[in-house]
Amino acid sequence: MHSAPRTEYKRNIKWKNALSFIAFVGPALLFFLVIQIIPFFMGIYYSFTSWNGISAAVEWVGLENYIKIFTNDKKFFNSFLFTTKFMIAAVIISNLLGFALALMLNGALKTKNLMRTVFFMPNVIGGLLLGFIWQFIFVKGFASIGKLTDIGVFKLAWLGDEATAFWGIVIVFAWQTAGYMMIIYIAALQGVDKSLIEAARIDGASNWNVLIKIIVPLILPAFTICFFLTTSMAFKIFDINISLTNGGPFNSTESVAINIYREAFQFNNFGLGTAKAILFFVIVAAFTTVQVIMTKRKEVEV
């Protein structure tokens, strides 16, 4: 006799749960579909065309764009080589600096909260604004310091020479991202069991041995996250790059993102530009996947 009302009650609960799910998750899914998924598949389609991004006529050319990239586009491969070198240098320096700051500010410093805020602040500044600020520092600030102190480092043409322009971009990227990595490392360090460190010190372990043998193995998941974030951000660098050097001098610091942007929106080769973007997406996805698998494997071994 009571089974029918109970079944109806359960059905109403399911409907309420479904409506709540749609109300809270539906808008996010809709925006993700419209902004991410649909444009991605449209990009795949346009990569097989010769569309210029303006006209209504879209001519299907098959694999012609991809063949052109591999056979007759030296600038794209030069930009990819620059981006790869930049990624390696930026990931290493950003994580070393972030980890060093985390170790320093995880102690019992009275000003540690203030210092954490100060070091994190560059991360909330927009990349374009950050690039223009540092462009002024490199061009005007360093030149003034060089005249006053006669120190050779400050007298270099930082953004006017290929080698120094490369390191200039690395410095700005590391300065922006190190604070973000610092926060992740601090969170991981605070989860380390202090009794393990105290036991190691009682047994006579040096600070270096405690760091290498205990702390680093215990926070490997944080390294996995930070390496993934900095790798993906370094590969996709655009705003800092374009505001600091605009790919110069002589296209020596042109990243893949700038090369794709120019191909699609300046030269109106939208089909070729999207083909480069799809190819770049596959390479970055493969590289970051391998990196995560390798670091995860290290976590399991430990």
Rank of each mutant, 00 (worst) to 15 (best):
N269Y: 05
I137K: 08
I225V: 04
N251D: 15
I202L: 15
A178Y: 07
M121E: 06
I13Y: 00
L211I: 11
I137Y: 09
K110E: 12
T295P: 00
I133D: 13
E8H: 10
L105S: 13
V124H: 08
Y45C: 11
D239V: 15
V25K: 05
S206W: 04
M294N: 06
Q291I: 10
K74S: 09
I240E: 01
W208F: 09
A257W: 04
G152W: 01
V192G: 05
A275L: 02
E8R: 00
N246W: 08
I171G: 06
A56L: 08
L33A: 15
L29I: 09
G107W: 11
L29C: 10
G26R: 00
A23P: 00
L96F: 08
D203T: 15
K68Q: 11
K112L: 07
T84Y: 12
M294H: 03
V290C: 06
R116E: 09
F227Y: 02
K14R: 15
I69Q: 11
A277E: 00
E198P: 06
A18W: 12
T117G: 15
N251T: 15
A143T: 05
F77D: 13
N72E: 11
G141Y: 02
T111M: 12
L114R: 13
I22Q: 05
S50L: 09
N246L: 06
K140V: 15
